[in-house]
């Protein structure tokens, strides 16, 4: 399964949920897969997709909030896994697209080929944490995490697939903010 295929599958499981998308490949490619009002494209602040998603989930406990994180982001902010496990937001789904490289900067290797991030999440205290390797497994697990109480962590192993020619998010940061905020008011 390529990263792009994983994002396409994730998009089919979304309704009106707010989704925080990590910077780089994940934001840029998901923008091309499905540009939704509820997508928060985090174009900078690497490492903070998880804390932004946690803050939103805690602020609106009745709304399911989804984080589409990346291995580089999770490795940068491992401490936030502890904050999520401690705060225990039942409405939070934490997906991590793991291509084992920093794809948008030229595929430099990350450490996630050796470090089992789903075990790190589990050890921190996420009540549910799984690794998936195939599109079938991803669909099966998304069915679970998008309906059960969280916080749930899903490590989605993918192959690099990003085509940098596909371009960047064209909305301005303030447009991204206003669209995202409007979803919480609806």
């Amino acid at each position: 399964m390529t990263g792009t295929e994983a994002l396409e599958i994730i998009a089919t499981f979304l309704k009106d949920e707010p989704v925080v998308l990590a910077n780089g490949f994940i934001s840029r490619e998901f923008f091309n897969v499905e540009d939704r009002k509820g997508n928060f494209y985090m174009i900078g602040s690497m490492g903070l997709a998880s804390s932004i998603g946690l803050g939103a989930a805690l602020a609106q406990p009745e709304r399911r909030t989804v984080i589409v994180d990346g291995d580089g982001n999770v490795l940068m902010s491992m401490g936030t896994l502890a904050m999520i496990a401690s705060a225990k937001p039942k409405n939070l789904v934490h997906l991590c697209i793991d291509n084992e490289v920093y794809e948008s900067t030229g595929k430099q290797r990350s450490l996630s080929n050796e470090i089992a991030l789903e075990k790190v999440a589990e050890a921190n205290g996420y009540p549910y944490s799984q690794r998936v390797d195939t599109s079938e497994e991803l669909k099966q697990e998304l069915g679970k995490v998008m309906s059960q109480e969280g916080p749930s962590f899903l490590l989605v192993k993918v192959t690099a697939s990003f085509d940098s020619a596909r371009g960047r998010v064209t909305h301005s940061p303030e447009e991204i903010r206003d669209r995202f905020m409007s979803v919480y008011r609806s």
Binding site: V20, F40, S45, G47, L48, A49, S50, S51, I52, G53, L54, G55, A56, A57, L58, A59, T80, M83, R177, F180, M181, Y184
Partner: peptide, 8 residues
């Protein structure tokens, strides 16, 4: 990050 998410 937490504050940014909470604000939005």
């Amino acid at each position: 990050g937490l504050c940014a998410g909470a604000y939005m």
